[in-house]
Amino acid sequence: MTEDFVNGAAVQALLDRASGLDAEGGDGRLKAIVRELAEAVMRTIVRHDVSESEFWAAIQYFQEGAAEFGLIVPGVGLEHFMDLLMDARDAEAGRTGGTPRTIEGPLYVAGAPLVEGDVNLSDDPDDTGTLYMSGVIRGPGGEPVEGAILHVWHANSQGWYSHFDPTGEQTPFNNRRRIRIGSDGRYSFHSKMPNGYSVPPGGATDRLMRALGRHGNRPAHVHFFVEAPGYRTLTTQINFGDDPFAADDFAFATREGLLPVPNRQGDAATIVFDFELQKAGASTEEGFSLRARAAV
């Protein structure tokens, strides 16, 4: 069987009907997208001679693994692809500079406490060292950014994020804060040291990674949103440059410029990291994407 089968009149008519192209009303752009996606899946089925049993096994996998879609999407490179695509669009528009963007991941929680000064992120005890992180938020001309809010979140030493911790032992905003930045653009926080972690063992993401001959590990890292009036909201994270998985992050979040090496002394580690924001070209760039996010 060749892909010419998909080009046949019966399949093409099916695609037109299934995507609503032969129906009045609806969203024309969405119809075109749905049609192309469905056709791509059909061509893949024919090209790789997928059997009926394999097809339904794949459907069952996605049904059972729906709760891990937020991990599967970065694991297969799609979330990083969106970063590469946005970078390319910026380059086409002549927009350069700024701290590199990288994936958000699925574990942000809206509504973290809004605080100022030298902030302690950790509410709960943890048998680990202390991370000290500080720096300056600047604009493209090197000017301190006034009125910025730095959202920061990371896992505990066991690799669990508050709100998503299956042990139920963390308070809702442990290792999560929004930091109001002063006129000098400086931020400073400390917290219990995050460690790297793996996707849930035996879960949908782990099973897929193993089937692909890959692992599901992430290095120790800290997530950030940076928002400020007149500037593009930045989504990024830093990976600890001395972590064994720093250059082999299953989620493809590692990017040049986002790999600071902590200065370690005893059980403490210090990272100095500055953020550079781009000017917003429109007010819509000052907000967040419409991605669904948890809230407490």
Rank of each mutant, 00 (worst) to 15 (best):
D184I: 09
R47N: 06
A294D: 08
R291E: 15
F69C: 02
L85A: 14
T44V: 12
P194R: 12
N175T: 06
A253D: 03
N7D: 14
S134N: 10
A155M: 12
Y108N: 07
P140S: 11
I179G: 03
G28P: 05
Q60T: 08
G241M: 09
E285T: 06
A9D: 06
V222C: 02
R264W: 06
M193T: 08
W56Q: 01
V199H: 03
N175H: 12
R255Q: 10
N174V: 09
P219K: 07
G117T: 12
F240H: 07
A269D: 11
R177Q: 11
L15T: 05
V6W: 00
I72L: 15
E54C: 00
D49C: 00
G117Q: 15
A292K: 12
G105C: 03
D90E: 15
E285R: 08
F250K: 00
V11M: 14
W160Y: 15
T171Y: 03
S51F: 06
P140I: 09
G213Q: 06
G266S: 00
L259A: 09
H215D: 11
G168L: 07
F288I: 09
F273K: 04
E3N: 15
I149P: 11
G97W: 07
Y108H: 13
L208S: 09
M86C: 09
G147E: 06
I271M: 09
F189C: 08
I238V: 14
T99S: 12
P194L: 04
A57F: 01
F164R: 00
A9H: 08
R232E: 14
A23G: 06
R180Y: 04
Q278N: 15
T167E: 09
V46D: 09
V119A: 13
D165C: 04
A32D: 15
G28C: 02
F240D: 13
A247D: 08
T102C: 10
Q237F: 00
H154R: 08
A251D: 07
G135F: 03
T2S: 12
G70H: 12
D242A: 08
G202F: 05
A32P: 07
A88W: 02
R232W: 01
M86P: 01
E256K: 13
V115R: 15
E285P: 14
G241D: 12
A280P: 15
I238M: 06
F55P: 00
G230P: 02
A57L: 11
R176P: 01
V272M: 13
H215R: 08
D22S: 10
E52W: 07
R177I: 00
L21R: 11
T254R: 04
A268T: 15
H154L: 01
E286V: 08
A93Y: 11
R186I: 03
V6N: 01
T284Q: 13
M82G: 02
E143H: 11
G26T: 09
R293D: 01
G111Q: 13
V296S: 01
L30W: 10
S183L: 00
G98A: 11
G98T: 07
S162Y: 08
G75F: 01
M209E: 02
L290M: 07
S188C: 10
V6F: 04
K31F: 04
R293A: 04
E286M: 09
T171I: 05
P113G: 02
R186N: 12
M42I: 13
D249C: 03
V115T: 15
S19I: 11
